[in-house]
Each structure stands twice: as C-alpha cells, then as structure tokens.
Amino acid sequence: MKMTLEDLLAGVPAQDGNGGQLLSPSVSASKARRAEPVTPIDKTTAIAKLVLQDEAQARANKTAQLKAAREQRDAGRKG
C-alpha cells in the first residue's frame, strides 16, 4: 500500500501560524555580517579566552574530584 500525503497528515493537528507562507528573516543578510573586520589581535584574544575558560573548567573539575575523594576518605575514618 502506497501512502499519500493525506494519509500522513491525517493524525497531525491543525497548526496556527503564518498561513503556510515562508517566514521572512528578522535580520537582513547584509546586517548579519560583522560591522568591522576581525583583526588578528581579535582572533588571538578570542582564542586566549577559550583556552583560559577550558583551563578554569578543568581546574574546577579536578578540585571537585579532590574534594569528593577527601570527603570519602574522611567519612571512612569516622565510621
């Protein structure tokens, strides 16, 4: 049996919206571009920020692991 579009859409509830029209973009393509060119120092700064964020996250993860291990060790001594 070959399915038709009507068969597929039979269980889909009616939709309220834009009346089947294509949505227009909220920002034009020319405005979506960056207003000023990206300089090499901007690229370097962005990369440096990412590296610092990654290092901070790794440090926070390691601190949490060490804290959990210390708490587990201390709980074993008390019990």
Rank of each mutant, 00 (worst) to 15 (best):
T39E: 04
A29M: 07
D74Q: 11
L22E: 15
A48N: 10
D16R: 09
Q72V: 06
M1D: 04
R33L: 15
G17L: 11
Q15M: 10
G11A: 14
L9N: 04
V27S: 00
N61I: 11
G76T: 01
S28W: 09
K78Q: 12
L22M: 15
R33M: 14
S30W: 00
P13C: 03
R59E: 08
G79Y: 06
S30N: 08
G79W: 03
D74C: 01
T45N: 14
I41H: 06
A48R: 09
P25I: 02
G11K: 10
E6T: 14
G76I: 04
Q15R: 08
G11M: 07
T39L: 13
M1E: 08
R70T: 15
L23C: 06
S26G: 01
A64I: 01
A68I: 01
Q65W: 03
P13H: 03
G19I: 02
S24F: 02
A32D: 10
K78G: 02
K43V: 02
A60E: 14
D16T: 14
V38C: 02
K2V: 11
R59N: 13
A64N: 06
L23G: 03
K78N: 12
A32G: 01
E36Q: 14
I41R: 09
R77T: 04
A56P: 00
I41D: 15
T63S: 11
D7E: 04
V51Y: 01
S28G: 12
A48V: 11
D7G: 05
L22I: 09
V51A: 13
D54W: 05
K67I: 04
L22G: 11
R73W: 06
L50H: 12
G17V: 06
E71T: 13
K43H: 00
A10Q: 11
D42Q: 14
Q21C: 03
S28L: 08
N18A: 10
A35S: 10
Q15D: 06
V27C: 01
Q53T: 07
R73L: 11
P37S: 14
V12H: 06
L5Y: 05
A14V: 11
R77I: 02
E6W: 09
R70L: 13
A10K: 15
R73G: 05
A48S: 07
I47T: 13
A69I: 06
E36G: 03
I41V: 07
T45C: 07
S24I: 07
L50T: 09
K2H: 04
G79P: 04
A60W: 09
Q72D: 06
A58R: 15
G19W: 02
A10G: 00
T44F: 09
D16S: 13
E36L: 12
L52T: 13
L52Y: 09
V38G: 00
L22N: 12
P37V: 12
L50E: 10
R34S: 12
D42T: 01
P40Q: 07
A29V: 11
K43F: 00
